[in-house]
Design a protein around this nucleic acid. Sequence first.
DNA 1: TGGCGGAATGATACACTATAACATTATATG
DNA 2: CATATAATGTTATAGTGTATCATTCCGCCA
Lengths: 163, 163
Amino acid sequence: MSAESAFPPIDHDHGRCVDLLMSTVERLRAEQTLRLTPQRRRVLEVLAASHVALGAYDILARLGGGDGRPAAPISVYRALDFLLQHGLVHRVESLNAFIACTRPGERHDALLMICSVCRRVAELQAPAIVAAIAESAAAGQFLVTHPIVEIAGICRVCRTVDR
Amino acid sequence: MSAESAFPPIDHDHGRCVDLLMSTVERLRAEQTLRLTPQRRRVLEVLAASHVALGAYDILARLGGGDGRPAAPISVYRALDFLLQHGLVHRVESLNAFIACTRPGERHDALLMICSVCRRVAELQAPAIVAAIAESAAAGQFLVTHPIVEIAGICRVCRTVDR
DNA sequence: TGGCGGAATGATACACTATAACATTATATG
DNA sequence: CATATAATGTTATAGTGTATCATTCCGCCA
């Protein structure tokens, strides 16, 4: 992923982002036994359609777009648990929110950049960070199971706009 | 800080941890204009007495040890905000909890190790991690304001015990 | 094909985390 | 002492997440 695509222009074509993700997921579903039910798929689609991290209740609000009665919160959380376990979604701890993974299929620890201006979240690929964490932890005899890196700051696009 | 003191033995003398922190804070209070009211001090003492991160309501429960009516949640949050702003406490995002800073006075970004067995949290000093984050973010034209690093895993002590 | 078993979802209630809004008290400073 | 600002009290409520038990869906196999 290039530096440009990490934080795309605000008014870019979201449709392509969604399609890219969902086609990858579709391939995974065909290959493996990934039980992507309609409900789980809808939650993933909602997340894929937003570069801004969404809370569970945000997702809930965007699901019931006209159907019958809205789902209960627990339904959304269950779908999110499934998607998290299968690496299709990342949790943003510092926001109590969720973001679609931009590299599904490749198991990885998420390194997230969070723009405090536009509120968008992007993944960062930086083996150097992961390596530095592994080395430092090992020096302290700490066994790493899940490194969390969330970098708050201002994205490329918002820095440019402000000038 | 040595690798040993980061995660001290489970049954070590907590009193010394508290004293060390509070004496440092006392010095800061004398030097600067740090308005450490009784309420803020009590919250800090509660946190200093625990190597396990405490939620706001945990703190609340440990405050009212026999006095008059217990404080309201908002009081604890206000004290925590103050302590956070003055670098005496860190927020643990992935736990929605708080931990006393082990290096008050030295402004720094917190690198936290969280043991999933004993639930204790320790700070890690690792300039290499901070540098790697700064470099990688800069490469993506992202301006870092506040890096969050929380490393979940198993601490030195718990790894040893399990053998 | 009909039933069995496990996975997924529905439904209800509740626990935990955090803040809004406004009143009151404490503290420093001239 | 007066007064302005900071801190705390009080009450209510918003936001996030889970427990529990009932029901439905779906693949599998006798």
